[in-house]
Design a protein around this nucleic acid. Structure first.
Lengths: 243, 243
DNA sequence: ACAAAAGTGTTACACGTACACCCATGA
DNA sequence: TCATGGGTGTACGTGTAACACTTTTGT
């Protein structure tokens, strides 16, 4: 019989009734958001295995017995989609009794934002597909993944209002209009151009570059990048800006 | 041998190597905050059992095999401290490999705010004590409970700035000065009396009562209560006020 | 009358909002 | 020169911060 205890100093026979409490599985699922200049997208796989064969799913899998959750998430993301070195933030844990047909599995959901251009997903392991999917075009999803996605999207929208998420979602160089479009897409609103610019620039997070976006048939826009130092400084104090 | 699968339709012998993945324990821990008019306090128990016998701890215990996490938390809180019908919000899950000496246990931490006057904790089960403890007076705590507490406190402080937490922490009837003291304590700052009042009243969340606080040797202050309707309305839209 | 806290009004200034206007480019 | 989006200035109203002031109670 498989030992249920990781610490050999504890004798399981001293706690015979404890075994039933050590029969949970733990999985991780990671909702990865990206932006391509037009749509907000989420990285989804197609399952090549039962249960939920062929269903769309958030990338995720069971955690190994001696692996911590963040490590597991990085491993699973790499195995299924090829993505590596992703910044992860814990979202929420879903622990419903019947959420997994194979047994009692609680899943720790993670959340990530990244520049879509930097990551080209390639399905492997039991994932038969891995695609950036516009968040309006979600099909039926495996397990309770739709619910997980909804919670993640809510978090993203809340996040936009408190942290400069453009830092993570936009290419390194971008125009103020790019940034405004991102915010308008995420929050599903419209902003006044002049006021948006004033507010964003007043935060002092952006460094103007000596570059313009070219090859457009109208006036070229100045490119900016985020100032990582200023971002750090504000991060620690917890921003709190509103749009 | 104990079956590891809750769903009898799945035959475990079909997945022999899967057993090692179903050897986790899951616990819940609940950080309950209260306010007594002077201090912010947290509900802690003293452990009457190994491991960490006699240590201060956040109330929590292992989840039963067919019990969902919120139900488990309510049960555990009632068993250990007598508190019932508490509003819970999920905080974060702590899943470090070595955080529990008995085996691999991930804990789902919950978070709660309540009126201290309404709840008089009584230790039972394996808790030998249950006390409202001022958050400055924390001793050494069991497991990684200090870390969990720190995350909870951070959440509380962030929360104060976005939701009117007084709603949950103050007695039903309170004065504007009570509310101001609460905010000053939580955020560790000072506010101008006149400006604080103007701002709070402008939110329209408070209903003035035809009552005064009496038996004080200075001018009696008007009592207020929260307007639950207005709170609901703003809740859905996600407040976002700052102080 | 005094102490102590309740409660209000005034002013200066920062900031958000609305909107009008000019600028640079390719076709 | 026109269409298109880039980019800026101003004027107005609201909100914030600082601070002085008045009011009401018990002793």
């Amino acid at each position: 019989m498989q030992t249920l205890f990781t610490n050999p100093k504890v004798d399981p026979s001293q706690h015979p009734d404890l075994n039933q409490y050590f029969a949970f599985g733990i999985s991780v699922d990671c909702v990865v958001f990206g932006y391509d200049g037009v749509d907000v997208k989420v990285l989804l796989i197609k399952r090549g295995t039962e249960p939920f064969l062929e269903y769309q799913a958030i990338p995720g899998d069971l955690v190994h017995p001696k692996e911590d959750a963040v490590t597991a998430t990085q491993r699973v993301l790499k195995d299924l989609t090829g993505l590596q070195n992703i910044y992860l933030e814990q979202l929420q844990t879903f622990a419903g009794v019947d959420r997994h047909p194979l047994g009692r599995v609680a899943t720790i959901a993670y959340f990530s934002l990244l520049r879509i251009e930097d990551y080209n997903p390639k399905p492997s392991s039991w994932a038969t597909d891995a695609q950036w999917t516009p968040i309006q075009q979600l099909g039926e999803m495996a397990f309770d993944h739709k619910e997980i996605f909804d919670v993640a999207l809510e978090r993203l929208q809340r996040r936009v209002r408190h942290k400069p998420v453009g830092f993570e979602l936009l290419p390194t160089e971008f125009t103020l209009t790019d940034l405004q479009h991102l915010y308008e897409t995420l929050l599903n609103t419209q902003f006044d151009k002049a006021n948006f610019r004033k507010k964003i620039l007043a935060m002092g997070l952006l460094l103007p570059l000596d570059k313009m976006r070219k090859a457009v048939r109208y006036r070229p826009a100045r490119l900016y990048k985020f100032d990582p130092n200023r971002y750090e400084a504000l991060s620690n104090r917890g921003f709190l800006f509103e749009l």
